[in-house]
Each structure stands twice: as C-alpha cells, then as structure tokens.
C-alpha cells in the first residue's frame, strides 16, 4: 500500500477539522498558551498583530523563525504563520519550520503585485483571503486549501467582513440558480476557472472551507459571521488588544459554537472589559486598506 503526503484531501481535510472553531493571532509563546487554554482551534504566529502593523507602518514580513519555533513548541494545537503575497521563499521557510498552515496574507506587504504563490508545489496547506467568489476561486485554482473572507484587518470594524462573507455567499447562491449555458459567462465575469464555477454551481458551496476574518472583536461579531454562513472565524487584534484577552478569547469560542443561541451569546458578552479600540474603515484612506491587496 502506498502512503502519500500533501494531497488535496489531506490539506483541505485539516481545514474541515478546524470548522466551528476560532483561530487566534498571537505574537508570543505566552499568548499562544492563553489562546490554547481559552479554546482556540489553532493559533496564527506573527510578530505584530494587524492593528500594530497598521499603526507602526513600514514593510511587514514573515516572522522570525525563532518566534515561530517557540510558538510551535508551546502549544499542542495547529500553528499557522503568514507569508507575504507571492513570496514563495517565505513559504518555503515556513514549510521547513513545520507550521501546519500558511496564510498567504494581505496583512503583510505584498512581495509580488502580479502573481500569488503556486501553492500546489507545497506539502503544507495554504489559506488565502478573498473579498468575492472570483477571488476565492482564483486562490483555490492556485492550490489554496482554505479560504477566509478578508474583512479589514486591525480595525475592530466588522463591516468589511460582513460585506465579504455576504458577497461570497450571495455569488455562490446565484451560481446555483443558473442554467448550464449561463455558467460560461459567469466564469468569465467572475474571472474564475470554468470547472470550479461548475463545481460551485452543482454543490452550492465552495470546494474548500470558508472562514471569515478582519475586524471581529466581540462574541456577537463572531456569532454574526457564523450566522452569515462562515465555517469558523479568525480573530486577529481583537483578543490581545483588548482589556482581558483570556476571558474575551474564551467568550468568542463559546459564541462561535452557540452562534444561533442568543442566551449563550448574551452570557458570554458580559463583563469582558474593554474591547480593542477600533478604527472605522470609512476613516481609513484607501491606500491603507489591506483588503484591496491581492487580486
């Protein structure tokens, strides 16, 4: 019998196992342990959370391998890390470090304004951001094994996340109502491969798991994303930029599982202390909007 690693089924399968869970940004081993203890399904290891990348500016890159090693050593749950869009060498480094998932992320400064990473070449799976269905399917075509709607990272403003998950879900629903001969034009308009468009039209869902990200800061935000059809949520700055990270993290985990139970969301929302200080996306000058990176 043959044994094979890095198959699409194995890569997409890990994302299936993360469903209903919360993936938390952490910048130290200590934060990673707090996240695991609060019920995070995975952690995203990075040097600066998006809110700090935003306020400090400059070029944001892959994290120091030492930091990623420390975080991998400190928890038993999967560890993800970010590479810059198109920076396949950062991805090679992250794969050799043994991370469980690579996020080819618009939160970092893009390394290539034309091409994304050819993700089929890697054994480790990739998650990529998307603002609409066409973008999601282009990433799947490049080998992404998981999609997250982008939102606007580091703001604490959930409106862009809402827009993107609604857009993706709406475009999926629209495909399912089309006749076969309309799918050719739909593929052209979505700028997505015809075969993937047909698959979505038939199954009524993306070929990979769809999480949401960008601006989630409260248990109610997480539950909103789940009720809008997300399979799970990423929380970036929202936890460790808040007053009581451990309590808020545990509350967001509970609200994600019981997203359709207002009594649970009410209880988990009590006494969480200060939420992260937000920035309204409308107040962000267009060049500082991360969601517009990637194509």
């Amino acid at each position: 019998m043959s044994t094979t690693v890095g198959t699409a089924r194995v890569k997409r399968g890990l994302a299936e196992m993360l469903k209903g869970g919360v993936i938390m940004d952490v910048v130290t081993a200590e934060q990673a342990r707090i996240a695991e203890d609060a019920g995070a399904v995975a952690v995203m290891a990075l040097e600066r959370v998006p809110a700090d990348i935003r306020s400090q500016g400059g070029v944001a890159r892959m994290s120091d391998p030492d930091l990623i090693d420390e975080i991998i050593a400190s928890v038993s749950i999967p560890v993800m890390a970010k590479a810059r869009i198109g920076h396949f060498v950062e991805a090679q480094v992250l794969q050799s470090l043994g991370v469980d998932y690579i996020d080819e992320s618009e939160v970092l400064s893009p390394a290539d304004y034309v091409n994304h990473i050819d993700k089929w070449k890697f054994t480790v799976p990739f998650v990529c951001g998307a603002t609409n269905l066409g973008e999601a399917l282009r990433r799947v075509n490049e080998g992404a094994a998981m999609i997250r709607s982008k939102g606007e990272a580091g703001t604490g403003d959930v409106s862009e996340a809402t827009k993107h998950i609604r857009t993706i879900r709406g475009e999926v629903a629209r495909l399912t109502s089309m006749s076969d001969d309309e799918l050719y034009v739909a593929a052209k308009e979505l700028q997505a491969p015809y075969e993937l468009v047909v698959e979505v039209a038939k199954t009524g869902t993306l070929p990979v798991v769809l999480f949401t990200a960008g601006g989630v800061a409260t248990p109610a935000d997480a539950a909103l994303m789940m009720q809008l059809g997300a399979d799970g949520v990423f929380v970036g700055s929202g936890i460790f930029k808040s007053g009581n990270p451990a309590k808020r993290a545990a509350a967001i985990v509970k609200a994600t599982t019981f997203h359709d139970d207002p009594a649970v969301i009410t209880e988990t929302s009590r006494g969480l202390g200060e939420a992260m200080v937000g920035i309204n996306v409308a107040d962000l000058p267009a060049p500082h909007r991360l969601a517009e990176r990637g194509w």
Binding site: T4, G6, G98, Y101
Partner: peptide, 15 residues
C-alpha cells in the same frame, strides 16, 4: 497519543 505523526506536513493517505 495525540498528534502522533508530527505537523500537518506529515499528514497522509494510505490503505
């Protein structure tokens, strides 16, 4: 034993 094969890169299919 949890996670007995290592990181996700070691995840596999077999019979």
């Amino acid at each position: 034993r949890r996670n007995a094969f290592g990181s996700q890169g070691e995840s596999f299919e077999t019979d």
